[in-house]
Design a protein around this nucleic acid. Structure first.
Lengths: 138, 138
DNA sequence: TTGCGTGCAAAGGTTTTGCATGGCA
DNA sequence: TGCCATGCAAAACCTTTGCACGCAA
């Protein structure tokens, strides 16, 4: 967490809007850039990357690395959803992010903590795999 | 799984050796290239990447995408250790990768599968957090 | 001898950075 | 007015690919 966003600008509104419009899926930086350009409000690459970084360090947006090391994906986290406390399942196929509120998974934390001496950071941890829809289709 | 390794070459031996020497941690392609160069047995980038791909598709080496989307990490999987079955904990501070063989965590799979209808892919999943050493230091 | 493997260089793609300009507060 | 934000272009990186040559079997 380096600098903090101080100014409100048209570009930042655009970027955040785009993320919110796609809050039910993840989206790459390039997709954001393309979408804004097509929408008639182009924003430069540098600005998009710089702002995304800030949003991530502020916890407003989550960053994923799934596409074979290629490009990072970003997804807006709604403020009222308290994502710090639960686990996330991310479907590799469709990109769906599933929020899981589950006692069993919460116990996982204490298990890992006491038996493996390791403190899990939920904000950075995602269980990758395949959701039921995608499992059935393939 | 595309092509299969047919020839045994000096370069391949070097690469595999390097992976085995570092079997207790993950290592990037660039690190392998550098190590071999410094060891007096340089192997070209292309060869390293191409061979790593093969090793991965043969299941001899595992590929991770953890380092902030930058470069992929590779780690040799000893044949008798069935790494497909266990979880990985990655310390955000020191970068240590911890292999966890644990019944509790194995149960996690079936739990997630039956209760949340989601099939976890171990090869892509890493639990991020802080190991005991780093927790104590900070 | 055959055909896979290697090396080099170039290309491809994503992300970062330097620097001058623009614009919010 | 003072900074921060933006845009552009260039650079930095990692990885892939084309092609000719080398070498294992």
């Amino acid at each position: 967490m380096t600098a903090v966003t101080k100014y409100k600008t048209k570009q930042r509104d655009q970027i955040l809007d785009c993320l919110i419009r796609n809050k039910d899926r993840h989206i790459t930086a390039v997709e954001i850039i393309t979408a804004l350009k097509q929408g008639g409000n182009p924003v430069s690459k540098a600005t998009v990357y710089r702002y995304l970084d800030k949003l991530v360090s502020q916890g407003i947006v989550r960053k994923y690395f799934i596409e074979e090391g290629k490009s990072a994906c970003y997804q807006y986290i709604a403020k009222n959803e308290d994502c710090g406390e639960h686990y996330h399942l991310k479907c590799i196929e469709c990109g769906q992010l599933i929020h899981v509120e589950c006692k069993y998974l919460e116990e996982l934390d204490s298990h890992v903590k006491f038996h493996h001496d390791f403190e899990v950071d939920h904000s950075k941890t995602v269980l990758y795999g395949c959701c039921s829809n995608c499992t059935n289709e393939s």
